[in-house]
Amino acid sequence: MIELEVRDLTVAFGPERQRVRAVEDVSFAIARGACFGLVGESGCGKSTVLRVIAGLNRDYGGTVSLRGTPVPPRRDKAYYKRVQMVFQDPYGSLHPGKTVYSQIMGPMLVHKLAGAEQRVDRALEAVGLGTAFRFRYPHQLSGGQRQRVAIARALALEPEVLLLDEPTSALDVSVQAEILNLLADLREREGLTYLLVSHDLAVIAHLCEELAVMDRGRIVEALTRDQLVRGETKVDSTRRLLEASEELGEDRLPPEAPR
């Protein structure tokens, strides 16, 4: 069953004469409970696709459907109850002057949900922080803890889809591992569907079963994780990304590290 589908998505920016097509004819579908990766260099349009789905960019051509029903460009509140986003930079996406509790409470109040307090506590437990963190401010948290709060804020609404925009690229590798594990656990436990955008092929390959490579606004290749691991790619953009990650230290078919 298809959870989220994007069909013939086109986005252009700029005034009439010098319009730049940032996204052209992008289509993909994500099955319920799957994790789909969108990868590419910066400026390839991957974040624009995510922003359209999140409803942050209303000026687009094509359709976005949730469980088979197309949604209007101006999303209603019910949409955000089902689709939530986690941003790249946990330093920028949390309000510096609000406690963890009131940040997560925000969406509860918007949606007038019953049992809001319990939801906040449950979300904090789910991301491994616990209720002791309720009254802390962002500056009292580490980068990894902040990202957990951002995830908790998205989870508290009990959404169906999480849009993840480079969720670990601002974090250290050791913290990245914790957050990637957390995301994998949550997906399993809560049956969530993920759309993950990243420039890091290794992160995408770790979390996603399927991925699409974007270049200059278009999807140039769609691959399964196994195809990627075996290096079965037909286009240069994917090869470039693979080479870049190998060039930067990942050895092809490495032997088990000596103990």
Binding site: Q176, A177, A202, A205, E250, L253
Partner: peptide, 10 residues
Amino acid sequence: LDSMPRIHRP
């Protein structure tokens, strides 16, 4: 070293 995801060692 161990905590990094690797493409070729899922």
